[in-house]
Write a protein that binds this DNA or RNA. Structure first.
Lengths: 337, 337
DNA sequence: CTGAAAGCGCTAACAC
DNA sequence: GTGTTAGCGCTTTCAG
């Protein structure tokens, strides 16, 4: 039965559409699900009514009645990092293919902000979460447990994933890259570490392992600041001041590495003859430099795709044997080393 | 009255908390709003119950009953662009100061994807939207109208904003930068345009205006590809092939400009003596280059802050006289020109 | 200071 | 092929 007032202060509801189409909201609901459940004539009337009213679906009732939101939450540490944009592309590809949507939040590499964002996304009832860290506050862990949504931790390979993980071994990758520098005869190798997040620290461990195996002294230049090209330059100057015999730098990422490479040349050092430079993540900037930047190639788009596929798989009840999936890495050993 | 089953398959609700705290859900609801409305003893029992159950707030009922979601939606064209990360910082600053949250979506510079994202965010009942484009599909415009949420379009200054706008005049900025190149005696100036989004086209118009005023011929190198450093290099090579007497390039952004500058040097051209290079947005990369990159300085964090403040202001019923707010720009005319 | 009832908009389940 | 009923979990009344 049509309700009298199509209140002007409210968004059109299914009831409004039903009233205008002279049918019931249940039929309109069916039409939205799969229009072939509805008679041709009714279908046309509904389509017209929707058009006229500009109906916008409302997720709230669905969510309220324990249905799915058909949205997954993705938490990014930073919005400016190329690294995460390829991840996002992979995620979107997998998610949109399945008719799901994504809601993004970001937390500036801060655990407490991550906690707030997790609460925020869960309070909107996302069906699953993709997180870019492996360390979380106790309350975050508690909320994930209580909410019982599938979670994929990406980038690293945590010892004990909350649920699922897709990533690579940053320690091993750093050890290999440092090993490659040593194999090329470099002896005084500094590690340039910015922001001091977990992945930067894991890479530092790999660097230290490789050096200690070769009997060389580590030299770590650290800062809490976020990575940038100009910061890379500053850090190289600090490294040169600390060790005038420096013959190589391994950088926690390509932004720092590119900045270091540019600054080295400005300081009159020939790369790689006098100074080798290696980065991490193999971003596009490395290919624009001359010589091109040696780096660790990480399959980030693939991580995103696999993470989303597994998350959606879990929603379908699939159980994965290997909680943590290792996507591996490769080394680009050209140019700057 | 306590309900019997604290179902194991459900997230804890306010009723569950109330049961455990031996009170009613109404009292718990009051406690969440402002705990001083509740007696000290009750308060302690509620806090304990919440702790035990790991209660997570639920936005759905609120939204359903026409309350606000206390979340604003932000649509970004890209996740990899530094430009938008400063915007996001500004937004977060203003929004979190007011106890609001943000939900992000991205649409790869594609109007139809933007449409889907707008629908998605509106279906979650965001209280307002920040959009980074000034052109939208008819359905997008319709949805915004029907949903009656405040909207701020950022970056540009649209002739007729949907609602509010905060941005700057890209055409004028490009005209000024091209004018600066002409004033320094450059005569054969190419414009390197990637991705061909609206802002790239506005900047091209400004470039053409300046050249035509000076009686010079424009030379526009275009591509549909997304900006990157290596693309900047390729485009410079195309420009040099098209005009061997090239003495300047004005680039649609700093990524292209940095790539062009690096490629120019690799081609043996001295910058700025033989070739001037100018960019747009004044990103950090420009400061790491030698010579440093001339560019248009855009106050993106400020745009984000002002946009969010005005959006929240509108939610409080404030009416702004000037729908479109011009934040201006500045030119950095050092180094590479 | 605390409680009880109604209602937001949608869909699952069950008629017809 | 279509309609009816009930209920999701919270807050806004209105009563104590």
């Amino acid at each position: 039965m049509p309700t009298a007032n199509a209140s002007r202060a409210r968004r059109p509801s299914l009831q409004d559409v039903a009233d205008l189409a002279a049918t019931s909201k249940m039929t309109v609901s069916r039409y939205l699900k799969s229009s072939d459940l509805v008679a041709e004539k009714t279908r046309r009337r509904i389509a017209e009514a929707m058009e006229t009213l500009g109906y916008i679906p409302n997720r709230a009732p669905d969510i309220l009645s324990h249905a799915k939101s058909r949205a997954i939450g993705v938490l990014l540490p930073s919005m400016s990092n190329q690294v995460f944009s390829s991840l996002v592309h992979g995620i979107e590809e997998a998610v949109s293919a399945r008719g799901y949507h994504t809601l993004y939040g970001h937390y500036c590499y801060d655990m407490d902000q991550e906690e707030r964002q997790v609460e925020q996304l869960l309070s909107f009832h996302v069906d699953g979460l993709i997180l870019c860290e492996t360390e979380h506050t106790p309350r975050t862990l508690r909320m994930l447990e209580v909410a019982r949504v599938p979670v994929v931790e990406v980038m690293e390979l945590p010892e004990r994933p909350i649920d699922l993980a897709v990533g690579l071994d940053h320690r091993a990758a750093a050890r290999d890259m440092t090993g490659a520098l040593l194999a090329r005869g470099r002896r005084r190798i500094a590690y340039l570490a910015a922001r001091l997040d977990r992945r930067t620290l894991l890479r530092e461990e790999g660097y230290r392992q490789a050096l200690s195996q070769a009997g060389q002294e580590p030299l770590v230049i650290q800062t809490q600041e976020h990575s940038s090209f100009s910061l890379g330059g500053e850090m190289l100057r600090r490294a040169l001041a600390a060790a005038p015999d420096l013959d190589a730098v391994f950088c926690t990422n390509d932004d720092i590495a590119a900045g270091a490479l540019l600054a080295a040349r400005q300081a009159g050092l020939e790369v790689p003859r006098q100074l080798a430079v290696a980065g991490f993540n193999a971003l596009d900037i490395g290919l624009a430099l001359e010589p091109r930047l040696a780096s660790v190639i990480t399959p980030r788009e693939r991580i995103g795709r696999l993470a989303a596929e597994r998350l959606l798989g879990r929603l379908d009840g699939i159980v994965y044997q290997d909680a943590a999936l290792d996507v591996g890495y490769a080394l680009r050993l050209d140019g700057s080393i």
